[in-house]
């Protein structure tokens, strides 16, 4: 057979080179960005991670969860529990938080997977509320008022505040690269094709030999692990966690859905566009208070009406662009 399947296009090859150049520039951000710039970038990285994971969950596996804050808060609390109570180095707590979330995701899935569609969405939210209530009952972790990371642990990470911030920055950048790289690898594998088929038509996927339940479960567990690691890092940067902050449906689900839907759900590139839009709006309009949230809502409604496949989908459909070589294309035809 002549030719073969390729995923690369000219644009996606250029995209790959540009992405690498950006990555190098971002790695050196501590030398050019300043404190506020670095903090903003960390925020953007972690939101990009959360949105990409939610996109995998909802856009590909069809699991529309509004309870991912359960795993953000869980990750944060695992870090604070291990670091503050058991003296585990905070950075080591991040992968442990991921493993803990993967394990806890199994019984969570056993319960919530009994529900479908909108019922699954509500069930996942209820589950997150249970997590929040449990956290507020643990008095060793400050109960309802929360806990700060003890000063001794903070200074043990790095001698100066500046040094600690650079360390957290690099860990956030590394975590983002690792998780996004993992998602790309997954989508490019044969499981990626199966995931796309599953999103299109579950019944046809089953009758073509795809184990739908197992595929969804694996995605749910992997996404939980990644979400918890992002959560652990979010609260390591903040140095303080409370049940309301850790399990906030606004911060860790509503904004994340906004980013994914605005950018383009079910497309890897979507959350990138969404994160840029979200942060531009936040940095320019956040002072407006509740008016800012109303503007976010209005923009979300407008995009859903005018560009139901998100801003990236809107552009890509008109120009056949993809920024990363993900979609399979056939060569030599």
């Amino acid at each position: 057979m002549s030719g073969g399947v390729t995923r690369a296009t000219r644009a996606s090859n250029i995209g790959l080179v540009l992405a690498l150049a950006c990555l190098v520039a971002l790695a050196f951000a501590p030398f050019w960005a300043g404190r506020d710039g670095m903090r903003l970038l960390i925020d953007a990285y972690l939101y990009l991670v959360l949105a990409s994971l939610w996109n995998l969950l909802a856009g590909y596996a069809g699991l529309v969860s509004v309870g991912q804050q359960a795993f953000v808060g869980l990750g944060g609390y695992v870090l604070f529990g291990l670091a503050a109570l058991a003296g585990v180095p905070p950075l080591l707590c991040i992968p442990i938080a991921g493993i803990a979330a993967a394990i806890i995701a199994i019984p969570v899935a056993a319960i919530t997977f009994r529900l479908r569609g909108a019922y699954f969405a509500i069930g996942s939210w209820v589950m997150a509320e249970v997590f929040r209530l449990v956290a507020s009952q643990i008095s060793a972790l400050g109960g309802g008022s929360g806990i700060s990371l003890p000063a001794g642990i903070v200074t043990a990470m790095a001698a100066s505040r500046h040094g600690r911030e650079i360390l957290v920055y690099w860990v956030a950048l590394g975590l983002m690269v690792a998780i996004l790289g993992g998602i790309v690898a997954l989508l490019r594998s044969r499981h990626g094709l199966a995931l796309t088929a599953l999103r299109d038509n579950e019944m046809a996927a089953r009758s073509n030999g795809i184990d739908v339940r197992r595929t969804k479960l694996v995605v749910f567990i992997l996404v939980a692990a990644g979400t918890a690691m992002a959560g652990a890092l979010i609260f390591l940067q903040r140095l303080r966690i409370s049940p309301d902050a850790g399990f906030s449906v606004n911060d860790w689900t509503a904004f994340v859905i906004f980013i994914t839907v605005i950018g383009g759900i079910g497309r890897f590139e979507g959350p990138f566009v969404g994160v840029v839009v979200f942060f531009v709006l936040r940095e320019t309009l956040a002072d407006l208070g509740s008016l800012y949230l109303m503007i976010l809502g209005a923009i979300a409604i407008l995009v859903m009406l005018k560009a139901p496949r998100g801003l990236f989908g809107f552009i890509a459909e008109r120009t056949d662009t993809q920024l990363l070589p993900l979609q399979r294309r056939v060569r030599g035809v």
Binding site: L193, A197, D200, N201, M203, A204, A205, S207, N208, I210
Partner: peptide, 22 residues
């Protein structure tokens, strides 16, 4: 299947490849 039930976001070849994954 009745009504064909192809995967709309996959191209022709990807649809065929899905069948071969088993």
């Amino acid at each position: 299947p009745e009504g064909r039930r192809l995967f709309p976001s996959l191209n022709v070849e990807e649809n065929l490849l899905i069948g071969g994954q088993i």
